[in-house]
C-alpha cells in the first residue's frame, strides 16, 4: 500500500476508514460508560447518527469568516496528522515527517479551534481554550519527554522506525516493557491528551458550558464531532506506535485500539474532574518525575 495505485486508493480511502473506526470507538466508549453505570446505553454507532443530524441542520449560525475557516483547519489538521502517523501497511508519509513533525501538526487542530472559538466572542469558549493551552504544559510536556527519552535510546526520531524497532522481538521489545516508566507516564498523558476525566477541564459542561463548543451548533459542532472521532483513532495510534509496538496487521491494530480505549474510558467513567491547577500539579508531581527518571535511567545505561 506504499506505492502505485494501491497508495492512491489508500490515500483516498483512509479518511473514511479512520472515520468509521472513530465512530465504532466512540460508540463503544459510550456503550462502555453506560454499562459501567448499569445502563443500556446508546446504539453502537450513535456518533454516526449525531454527526448526520448535526451536518443536516437547516440553519447554521456563524460568527465570522475565521469561525468558518477554523472548522476547516480543525478537520484538515486532524486528517493531516492521521496521514503522518504510520498504521499497519501504510507508512508512506512517515518518510516526509518524523514524530517531531507529528508533535507540531497535532497542534494545528487546537490552534484552528482556538481561533474559531475566539471569534465566537463567548467568554466560556475563551476560558475553555485558556484551560486547554495550560493543560499542554501538563500532559504534552510529559508526553514529549517520554518520546525524547525513547527516541534518544533508539537513535531515531522517526515514528515508523521506532515502531519497527519494537516489532523486532515481539512483546519483549515493546516500549512499555523495555521502558515501563516512560510507558506508564505516557499513559497518564494519553488520558490528558484525549481530554477524558479526570483531566476533562476543557469541556467541563457544568462549569463553563462545554467551553469551546459553547457557540458551536449545526454543522460547526458536526465538524467538531468528526474531528473528535478521527482524533480518537490518531491519538490512540500514536501511543500504540510509541509504546505498544504498533501493529503488524489490521486485526492486531483494531484489537489494540479497543483495548487501549477500554482502559481510557474505564478511568473516565469512575473519576470526577480535577481543577486546572490541580491537574497541572498532578502531572508535574507524578508522571513528569516518572518520565524524567526513565530518561535518566536511559542516560545511565547509555553511558
Amino acid at each position: 500500500m506504499n506505492s502505485g495505485i494501491g497508495l492512491i486508493v489508500w490515500i483516498i480511502a483512509y479518511p473514511f476508514v479512520s472515520f468509521s473506526l472513530g465512530v465504532l470507538l466512540g460508540g463503544y466508549g459510550r456503550k462502555l460508560t453506560a454499562r459501567i453505570q448499569r445502563r443500556v446505553g446508546p446504539s453502537w454507532i450513535q456518533p454516526f447518527f449525531d454527526v448526520v443530524k448535526l451536518m443536516s441542520k437547516k440553519t447554521n449560525v456563524s460568527h465570522g469568516y475565521m469561525h468558518d475557516v477554523a472548522m476547516m483547519m480543525l478537520v484538515g489538521g486532524t486528517l493531516l496528522t492521521m496521514y503522518f502517523v504510520p498504521v499497519p501497511g501504510f507508512h508512506y508519509f512517515s518518510q516526509f515527517g518524523d514524530y517531531i513533525v507529528i508533535m507540531y501538526i497535532l497542534l494545528v487542530p487546537p490552534l484552528g479551534m482556538a481561533l474559531g472559538v475566539g471569534q465566537t466572542a463567548n467568554p466560556n469558549g475563551s476560558i475553555g481554550i485558556a484551560r486547554a493551552l495550560q493543560m499542554l504544559a501538563g500532559y504534552e510536556v510529559t508526553f514529549v519527554l517520554t518520546f525524547i527519552g525513547f527516541a534518544m535510546k533508539n537513535g531515531t526520531t522517526s515514528m515508523y522506525e521506532l515502531m519497527m524497532i519494537q516489532q523486532s522481538g515481539g512483546v519483549a521489545t515493546w516500549g512499555l516493557v523495555t521502558n515501563p516508566l516512560l510507558g506508564v507516564a505516557a499513559l497518564f498523558c494519553l488520558q490528558g491528551m484525549m481530554n477524558e476525566k479526570p483531566f476533562e477541564v476543557v469541556i467541563a459542561p457544568h462549569e463553563i458550558a462545554t467551553g469551546p463548543m459553547t457557540e458551536m451548533g449545526g454543522k460547526y459542532l458536526g465538524m467538531m464531532f468528526i474531528q473528535h472521532l478521527i482524533n480518537l483513532v490518531v491519538e490512540l495510534t500514536i501511543y500504540m506506535n510509541l509504546f505498544l509496538g504498533g501493529a503488524t496487521n489490521w486485526f492486531e491494530y483494531v484489537a489494540k485500539l479497543f483495548a487501549l480505549f477500554t482502559l481510557v474510558m474505564s478511568v473516565n467513567a469512575v473519576y470526577g474532574r480535577f481543577r486546572t491547577d490541580s491537574a497541572l500539579r498532578f502531572f508535574w508531581k507524578l508522571p513528569l518525575p516518572m518520565a524524567a527518571l526513565g530518561v535518566i535511567l536511559i542516560m545511565i545505561n547509555g553511558i
Partner: peptide, 14 residues
C-alpha cells in the same frame, strides 16, 4: 434516556 439517543446538552446552539 440515552438508549434512544437522547442526551442533555448545555447550550441552545447544540
Amino acid at each position: 434516556m440515552e438508549r434512544f439517543g437522547i442526551m442533555p446538552m448545555v447550550t441552545p446552539r447544540q
